[in-house]
Amino acid sequence: MKTLRDAKIGDTVKVVKLHGEGAVKRRIMDMGLTKGTEVFIRKVAPLGDPVEVNVRGYELSIRKADAEMVEVQ
């Protein structure tokens, strides 16, 4: 299973499914990371975490631990 965490900088990936449950999952989805959304991996923070992605036309910062919950292709 490939997750958002594994995606390389500069890649554009498509969300397949969100794992996890409850508040954390809801929060990620509220921010627009839902099934079928295209996500562009913009950059990684200087210290290696978090990751900046472009989703639905805006910039989002997401920690790697949470990016792991987003299955992509």
Partner: peptide
């Protein structure tokens, strides 16, 4: 209550 792990980076 963990910190918000997703954060918007506004223009």
């Amino acid at each position: 209550d963990p910190a918000p792990f997703v954060m918007e980076l506004p223009a």
